[in-house]
Amino acid sequence: MSLTKNNLSIACLIFAFIGFLDATYLTILHYKNAFPPCTISGCETVLTSQYSIVFGIPLSLFGSLFYLIIIGFSVAILLHKRKIFAHGLFISAFAGLFVSAVLFFIQFFEIKSFCQYCLLSEVISLVIFIICSLLYSKFLRTK
């Protein structure tokens, strides 16, 4: 499989979809006042910490929206190879990576616990960022 713009967008789409499932699952559970099945101890601590809610909105909902945006830009690039979409995708992916890194450090230094759903999301946003960077470089090369 060569690293064409189409293949990269599809890869990005797939990972964003996995991330979307992960974040949306947590969002639904939040509003149901329930916890997901946790295998790592401390998972509940992370999911119910003061950092899990911003302005009364659970972080996982922001996560779901982030992945939807990535899905949107990936589909847009699949359909139209316009530079503006590539800009949008790269900026979103970078923002996602930045937020993920902050959340990872909050888990590590502040809460001192981890939750596998959050870690999965953080890994996915890193993978998405790598794929999007490759895709973006292709767009930058083609004038």
Partner: peptide, 23 residues
Amino acid sequence: IIVGVILVVVISIVGLIKLAGSS
């Protein structure tokens, strides 16, 4: 493609709601 992606997203949300309820 657009309809397909929207459908997949909507179906997965419904599925997740079911999953969250059943778990």
